[in-house]
Design a protein around this nucleic acid. Sequence first.
DNA 1: CCGGGAAATGTTACCGGTAACATTTCGAAG
DNA 2: CTTCGAAATGTTACCGGTAACATTTCCCGG
Lengths: 344, 344
Amino acid sequence: MVKKPSKKPAERRSAVAKTPTLADIAAEVGVTKITVSRALNAPEQLSPATLEKVRAAIKRSGYTPNLLAGSLSSNRSRLIVALVPSIAGAMFTATMQKVAEHLQEHGYQLLIGQAGYDDAREDALLEAVIGRRPDGIILTGIVHSAQARQKLRAARIPVVETWDLTPKPIDMLVGFSHPAIGKAAAEYLWKRGCRRPAIISPDDRRARLRAEAFSAVFAAKKYAVPVVEAPAPTPMGDGRSGLTALLKTHPDIDGVFCGSDNLALGALIEAKARGIMVPRQLRIIGYGDQSYGKDADPPLTSVRIDGAAIGRIAAEMLIARATGRPPKHKVVDVGFTLVERAST
Amino acid sequence: MVKKPSKKPAERRSAVAKTPTLADIAAEVGVTKITVSRALNAPEQLSPATLEKVRAAIKRSGYTPNLLAGSLSSNRSRLIVALVPSIAGAMFTATMQKVAEHLQEHGYQLLIGQAGYDDAREDALLEAVIGRRPDGIILTGIVHSAQARQKLRAARIPVVETWDLTPKPIDMLVGFSHPAIGKAAAEYLWKRGCRRPAIISPDDRRARLRAEAFSAVFAAKKYAVPVVEAPAPTPMGDGRSGLTALLKTHPDIDGVFCGSDNLALGALIEAKARGIMVPRQLRIIGYGDQSYGKDADPPLTSVRIDGAAIGRIAAEMLIARATGRPPKHKVVDVGFTLVERAST
DNA sequence: CCGGGAAATGTTACCGGTAACATTTCGAAG
DNA sequence: CTTCGAAATGTTACCGGTAACATTTCCCGG
């Protein structure tokens, strides 16, 4: 079984000039690879003279460490992936911002993946994400299939679910109760004298949880709350048309619980266009407390979620895990605040 | 020089049960690693019987391929990274959406990194991104340092810059001319009879390009356009306060060129609150043509950018590159549209 | 001048895949 | 029953780093 000797490495792969590697730097300086590796990851272990020489060589060559190789070897990728249903969702941006900041301080990098609303795609994305072996995954309000949950568990990657309080978290969780919000909004409107409220809601699962809890409160008072749904993400226009639709079938409504500030703002505009006095004749309450709500006329009452806090806590949890320290709490409820303004 | 024999592999690394690898699957089925690899990447090369057995074993074990290892070996990561200045920027979401769709169809994955407004951070992020050896990078309106540009070139990773027409692109480019927009807006307002316009603008570089070109047109007509700047990203409130500030010093203005629809909407609200008739006394024009603009009262004239087209073209360029085919054009100008509505 | 421990650097063997080439198997033609 | 090329599978050597342990260097007190 005679075998031809294989070609020399240099000829093996593509012929174009490669980017420099650790070995190149090491050869240039006259040390071994591990010394260069230490210059990057544990500089305090090297003598000042060696460190200086290595750094100079790195700068000269424009060397950029291949993190794929490093991660593969060390089994730590210093990468956290956050999956959001849609990049467009204004709600999550504050959270992501905070997560990115926090992680950066600890030498981790955040990459954001868009899961979309398609279930098959979600599975494929998750597979790809797990394949890259991140040190942690942040899930934002994603409906994951049983199979996906199974894969996540099997991968042994720390997971934080956010923006919701699911009954059986995969691992860790930072969120709040959507039904509690619906209930609070209903009770608040009732207290303000509202007796015939309606709902305009996005058609996503969590918005429905809020809407249902809202309806339940009034159902207990023998009133069936009319509901109009609009496909997420909801533009302002859907708030206008939503109110129009509601008024056609229920001209006597005296309040609207909107599933997003966008919808609420649209309803507000439509009400004004029709000469309906807000809040005198119609009380409007939104959700999300977007920055533009307080600039509306009248300023918009809304439910405020501390997205930044969610981000901070989620990041802390993952960092704690990555450093071998278990987080104090695996489940955190950040609650919500009803911000009262002139629209109610 | 006697050396102790090293410990067996199983004892070398962490003792916890590992996730399965290609080798595990191969052993279970009774083939070699490469056969399992082919089952995943080139199933047509295997006999139906073998393929079936391998697939069954994969499913049974819950195996997820380690893409770090695969990418390292094959030198293709099937990963495209997009860097945006801020996740919150509503403008880029349409682009990212389209990019994600397009890439997914071709088996690539999109990950989004937030560069932030900090320059030092931008360099660090870029280093980390290059380190992960993506097959392509999409830059959205980022001011990159000379050093960063150098690194990008050295990394030989295909790069598409977007949302701008820079004079010396790093590699490929899909954008439009910001000065052309400023000029067009100015000429349009002039034609509508506007003689004393003002500007409310975010303080980012590209918004300034538009503002300066706008001012230049009126400077040629011997009128110095007053400017108010607000820190990006601009909330509606800054539009309100911006108009207030302008009216204090220039009570005779008859038009406002706003650097974002948010600012324009804020100005609109403030004008209404002051009883200023729009467009009769004050013409307002925005930028971005966000969905809520047409629901404003009056509907907002704005400059529309086809963000989806930018995304599609950028993705096409990168895919073309990745498949060895050079793209038809390295620089594409997608232009813009002035959408005329009742606010002017 | 020597011993010994800390500091600095080196050696070896992987991490988990894929490229490139080699070999074996198999069906159909001669 | 060969022969032969295509199809199926295997072998070997990496990709570019890091872990774990080994060795060498250096400095200091005795």
